[in-house]
């Protein structure tokens, strides 16, 4: 774990947390507005399930861009002036560099998602919602797992030459995919890391006879998919590590 402090030292003054949090907080703001609107109308009970469903609905659009920005801020320090080549020429292991960066990114994701969920729940509590620790933990784990699953291959791309625009472009494309696939079949949602949040969402909307949302309820079928999502994420991380190792950069 000695590599993590070194990775932290490399990103000094790069304002990783504030810039990435700004993206995340746009999702929190969207959730706050939705909850506020529901509370004002008074037609739907604003409880823990409602709050978490709202935040989970916006995460597949916000998380890809947030992860892409996070990777660019972390890996960009290495790439802008080809320090990766310099470090490899000095004897550093490319695999260790990738692992240490991914661990650092995972650490940032824990902080950012915790702040994001705390913000959304905070607005919910302000609107009279209750707090459900178990459900919150489920949603937080799902967000974290899918974000790491997305971060691993993006980090491989980011570390292969100065590919920051490509990483941001993928983040934006996945944001659009998140908007388009909200009502897609579960199997299709399981294809992309970000839309797996829709598929394995432990909450769901309840529709009335006129097909209007009449409330929100627990979704045990979705929650049952969380272990599968974790398994897929582990496989993607392992595959990314292998590709990074094999996909040697020809300096």
């Amino acid at each position: 774990m000695t590599g993590i402090p070194l990775e932290i030292a490399k990103i000094k003054r790069r304002r990783v947390l504030p810039i990435t949090l700004a993206v995340t907080l746009s999702g929190v703001a969207w959730t706050a507005m939705a909850i506020g609107k529901m509370a004002a109308k008074g037609k739907i009970t604003v409880d823990a399930v409602t709050v978490l469903n709202q935040y989970n609905s916006v995460l597949p659009m916000v998380a890809p861009l947030m992860v892409a920005v996070l990777i660019v801020r972390v890996a960009g320090a290495e790439q802008e002036n080809d320090m990766l080549t310099r470090l490899v020429a000095a004897g550093a292991s490319r695999t260790s560099l990738w692992i240490n960066k991914l661990l650092l990114i995972a650490g940032f994701l824990v902080i950012i998602h915790t702040i994001g969920f705390a913000g959304a729940i905070g607005f919910g509590l302000g609107s009279g919602a209750t707090f459900d620790a178990g459900l919150t933990a489920q949603c937080l784990v799902l967000a974290l797992v899918t974000s790491v699953e997305l971060a691993a291959p993006l980090l491989v791309i980011a570390l292969r030459g100065n590919r920051q625009p490509v990483v941001i472009a993928i983040g934006l494309a996945l944001t659009v995919a998140g908007a388009l696939l909200s009502l897609a079949p579960v199997w299709l949602q399981m294809v992309l890391p970000s839309t797996q949040i829709y598929a394995a969402n432990p909450t769901k909307a309840v529709f009335d006879a006129a097909n209007y949302v009449s409330g929100y309820a627990l979704n045990p079928e979705g929650a049952a998919l969380i272990p599968l999502v974790a398994l897929i994420a582990a496989a993607v991380v392992a595959a990314s590590a292998i590709v990074h190792r094999m996909w040697k950069v020809e300096a």
Binding site: A9, K10, I11, K12, R13, R14, A77, E78, E80, N81, D82, M83, T85, R86, A89, A90, A251
Partner: peptide, 14 residues
């Protein structure tokens, strides 16, 4: 071995 290849590499933020 010490090396300098194709111009200096550095972290601009440090």
């Amino acid at each position: 071995t010490g090396s300098l290849i194709e111009g200096p590499s550095y972290y601009p933020n440090l």
